[in-house]
């Protein structure tokens, strides 16, 4: 794995480059999220379905999954429930992206163990702040 450098409190500290997987059926959204993550110098993997996401997870070690709720075939939510049952993947944090800002959907996701929930349209400031927090980049 490549090594990236992240400046923390003015010091250069060698940090292992983090890998983030984006699972979303919309190519445009994948690109927006991928671009947003570019500033943090991650290795970014993309998948356009839960099925492809699963394949990526089997091939790569992933530190964070950014998952779209609504996708044809298998929803992001159902995919998340499957990952939770899977020993190798159950501890990977998930940020759920969803246009459904309904209270019930959000509660359902959080009660199922999703770490963070970002509603579309989301601001990059909020998405990146959550990513920094989940991966503890600022500590």
């Amino acid at each position: 794995m490549e090594t990236g450098y992240i400046t923390i409190w003015g010091k250069d500290m060698a940090e292992e480059q983090k890998t983030v997987l984006i699972v979303d059926d919309s190519a445009m959204l994948r690109r927006i999220v991928n671009d947003a993550l570019d500033i943090l110098d991650f290795e970014v993997l993309e998948a356009e379905s839960a099925f492809e996401g699963q394949e990526q997870l089997e091939k790569h070690q992933v530190d964070l999954i950014i998952l779209d709720w609504v996708m044809p075939e298998k929803s992001g939510y159902d995919f998340f429930l499957e990952l939770k049952e899977h020993e190798a993947f159950s501890s990977i944090p998930v940020i759920m992206l969803s246009a459904e800002d309904g209270k019930d959907m959000m509660l359902k996701a959080i009660r199922a163990g999703i770490r963070h929930y970002v509603t579309k349209p989301f601001t990059h400031e909020d998405l990146l702040a959550r990513v920094v927090q989940v991966l503890k980049l600022n500590i």
């Binding site: 400046t7 947003a36 570019d38 500033i39 990059h124 990146l128 702040a129 920094v132 980049l137 600022n138």
Partner: peptide, 18 residues
């Protein structure tokens, strides 16, 4: 108040959409 945004502000790097 947010450590996370301060971390991002100090980096001073912004994606094309931002």
């Amino acid at each position: 108040i947010s450590n996370e945004v301060i971390f991002l502000a100090k980096r001073g790097i912004y994606d094309p959409f931002t």
